[in-house]
Simulated scan of single mutants.
Amino acid sequence: MPQWIDTAALDDIEDEDVMRFDHAGHIYAIYRVDDQVYASDGLCTHEQAPLSDGFVMGHVIECPKHNGRFDIRDGRALCAPVCEKLGTYPAKVEAGRILIEV
C-alpha cells in the first residue's frame, strides 16, 4: 500500500537542483524546479549512475555518466544513450517538508 514519506525540508534543496534520498533499500532523486517538487528513481536506467550527481535544466535531469536526459515530470527518456524511462513518484510539500509517495 502506498505511503507518503518525509524526505527533507524544502529549503534543503535549491531551485533547479536534485538531491539523493535513500529509503528501504531504494535510491530516489528529489527535484525542485520553480518551487514545484518531483521525485524519480535515483539511478539512471542506462548504467545505474546516481542522478543526484547530474545536472538539472528546467524539467530535465542530465545523467552525469553519459549525458542521457530524462524529463523529471514523467520519467521520459529524452536522448541517447538512455531509452528506458525512469520510474516517477508523486511528490508534494507540506509544512515546508518534501513528501513522496512510495
Rank of each mutant, 00 (worst) to 15 (best):
M1R: 12
M1C: 07
P2C: 00
Q3D: 13
W4R: 12
W4P: 08
I5D: 04
D6N: 15
A8Y: 06
A8S: 12
A9D: 14
L10F: 11
D11A: 14
D11K: 13
D11Y: 12
D12T: 10
I13P: 09
E14P: 03
D15G: 02
D15T: 09
E16K: 08
E16I: 02
V18N: 08
M19Q: 11
R20P: 06
F21H: 04
F21S: 11
D22E: 15
H23T: 04
A24C: 11
H26A: 09
H26S: 08
I27W: 00
Y28N: 10
A29T: 06
I30T: 09
I30L: 14
I30K: 13
Y31P: 01
R32S: 07
V33E: 07
D34S: 10
D34I: 00
D35P: 02
D35E: 13
D35C: 00
Q36G: 00
V37R: 08
V37I: 06
D41Y: 00
D41V: 06
G42F: 09
G42S: 05
G42A: 10
G42P: 07
G42V: 03
G42C: 07
L43Y: 04
L43E: 14
L43M: 10
C44R: 11
C44A: 05
T45Q: 12
T45E: 07
H46A: 01
E47K: 09
Q48Y: 08
A49F: 04
D53R: 05
D53T: 00
G54K: 03
G54M: 01
F55H: 12
V56K: 09
V56Q: 10
M57H: 09
H59R: 06
V60E: 11
I61P: 00
E62I: 08
C63R: 09
K65A: 14
N67V: 05
R69F: 00
F70G: 04
F70H: 06
D71Q: 01
D74P: 09
D74N: 15
G75P: 08
G75D: 11
R76M: 07
R76Y: 01
R76G: 04
A77P: 14
A77T: 12
A77C: 04
A77H: 12
L78V: 11
L78C: 08
L78W: 02
A80K: 14
A80S: 04
V82D: 05
V82E: 12
V82K: 03
V82R: 08
C83S: 13
C83L: 06
C83I: 13
E84F: 02
G87V: 05
T88A: 05
Y89F: 14
Y89G: 04
Y89H: 12
P90I: 01
P90V: 07
P90D: 15
A91R: 12
A91N: 08
A91E: 07
K92A: 11
K92I: 01
E94H: 08
E94W: 02
E94D: 10
G96N: 10
G96S: 11
R97W: 11
R97E: 11
L99F: 14
L99I: 01
E101P: 03
E101A: 01
V102R: 15
